[in-house]
Design a binder for these strands. Structure first.
Lengths: 122, 122
DNA sequence: GCGGTAGGGGAAAAATTAATCCCTATATGA
DNA sequence: TCATATAGGGATTAATTTTTCCCCTACCGC
């Protein structure tokens, strides 16, 4: 795993939540786990744009940050289930606020975002 | 400026808000501008860990995304003031929710974050 | 034995983001 | 005259994150 070379800022609440939520797929992982998609293969199907690899890495980080727990069933073929910890559950309303703002301003956001990357990116 | 090579995901509200809010210092810039620190030099003093350069770049992105506006006074020495657009103002309650969750869980977050980077990073 | 399913992970490359360094300009005050 | 404050930007390097590619285990059914 990659080892940080620079100490992150941990001054205020915004720094702290940033540390655990940054990561391209983390918020969605939390969201889908909360919706009941608890197995790795289900999550991979819900987030097809991410590779298995990244999801595993980010799931591991969420676990290290105590937002989710991983239960491995000693069966064959292997079965794994993730679930939110109580701590992780308290994040759901927060994520909900983010998603609602994004949904409410969907058209405008899409427009301003695309305006900045028009030329070659498609 | 760096030109993206890969089209970002813009499927849902979470993707969209992520696009405009990701960036190490953006949330704090919005927050401080809202608190009345409107001039570049004031913002730099409020966020001493960031270099002038990055702040300028991220301010420019916030401006492109229509979250803030930049007013340049034609005086010498130069004077510039940023302010939130109406659109940007609607983000303040959202940022507030993020910050509150982080503040409320400050100790636990600091602990789990530090646990992951103990060894060499200090 | 082969292919499918379920769950992983190492190594290296590519993409992206942030930090460094150095340079521009003018006015004011010591 | 020299340092300081104000605002900004190009070029380069470093740091970090995400992707790609390839590999592994074990069982089941055919």
């Amino acid at each position: 795993m990659y080892e940080r070379k620079v100490l992150p800022n941990l001054n205020c609440g915004l720094d702290l939540i940033g540390e655990v939520l940054y990561g391209k797929w983390k918020i969605r992982l939390l969201w889908f786990i909360n919706e009941g998609y608890t197995r790795p293969s289900e999550l991979q199907r819900k987030i097809p744009d991410a590779t298995r690899r990244v999801l595993n890495i980010q799931l591991k980080e969420l676990e290290d940050h105590e937002l989710i727990t991983k239960k491995i069933y000693p069966v064959v073929p292997p079965k794994v289930e993730y679930s939110l910890t109580e701590f992780g559950q308290t994040l759901i309303p927060v994520i909900s606020v983010l998603g609602n703002w994004g949904d409410k301003n969907e058209d405008r956001l899409r427009s301003v975002i695309l305006k900045r990357l028009k030329p070659e990116c498609l």
